[in-house]
Simulated assay, not measured.
Amino acid sequence: MRPYPCLDTLSDEALLRMLIREKEGDGTVQELLSRHQSLTDLFVHAELEELCRIKGVGQQKARLIKVVWELSRRLHQADLATAPRIKNPDDVVAFVRADLKYAQKEMFLILLMNTKHMVIHKEIVSVGSLNASIVHPREVFKTAIKKSASALICVHNHPSGDPSPSKEDLAITKRLVDAGQLMGISVLDHIILAGSHFASLREEGAVEF
């Protein structure tokens, strides 16, 4: 049994209580959240003096709140410095080839990107049979929404060695493009990798992106 629950399941209020080690019934966290409209307002815009005026915070806890923001900012900067930027299908293939090169089953992978087309997350969302991959838009966009992606690229492999898209490949791509338009997350391409060859459905004009 884990000593603590998964952090991503906890509410903002619960996480703040853990951060400042609030004693039960103090009401400090409730006051922090009521005075600030969002976590961004609390961690980024609130001044130390302003935080210290809240009963139960003090200098030490106020500084801890600002330290969390500074660490978060530096982590974001470090991610941006090392994240690959996708400019064309060759960049995509170079980035994912190791994940799919020896796969004996079809695997459907997504690259999530920010507004500058820098990769912020890579994930395999489906593993199919030797000749089919079952993909539902719900599984694709669930992670994209969670990671605040602005765009994504789909990639899957054909173990047969032929990168030509099937009718199913075209259908799921069209379905994902339509779903992305509704959600405000652009599907930029769907690339099929087969051995040393690949096909970009965008470049081939097989689907309207």
Rank of each mutant, 00 (worst) to 15 (best):
M1C: 13
R2S: 11
L7Q: 05
L10N: 09
S11Y: 00
E13A: 10
E13S: 06
L15D: 01
L19V: 14
E24V: 10
G25Q: 09
D26L: 09
V29R: 05
S34A: 06
Q37D: 02
Q37E: 11
Q37R: 02
H45S: 12
H45G: 08
E49C: 10
G56R: 11
V57S: 08
G58Q: 11
Q60M: 09
A62D: 05
L71S: 05
L75Y: 15
H76K: 08
Q77R: 15
T82D: 04
T82W: 10
A83W: 04
P84C: 13
K87L: 03
K87H: 02
K87N: 12
D91W: 05
V93C: 13
A94I: 07
R97Y: 09
A98G: 00
L100V: 06
K101P: 01
N114T: 13
N114C: 08
K116H: 10
E123K: 14
V125M: 04
S126G: 03
V127H: 14
V127R: 15
S133E: 00
V135D: 09
H136L: 14
R138I: 04
V140S: 01
K142S: 05
K146E: 13
K147D: 10
A149Y: 06
A149P: 10
S150F: 04
C154N: 15
V155A: 02
V155W: 10
N157H: 01
H158Q: 07
G161W: 00
S164D: 11
D169V: 02
D169F: 11
V177D: 00
V177Y: 11
D178F: 09
Q181C: 06
S186A: 07
D189A: 01
H190F: 05
L193A: 02
A199G: 02
R202T: 12
G205F: 07
F209I: 12
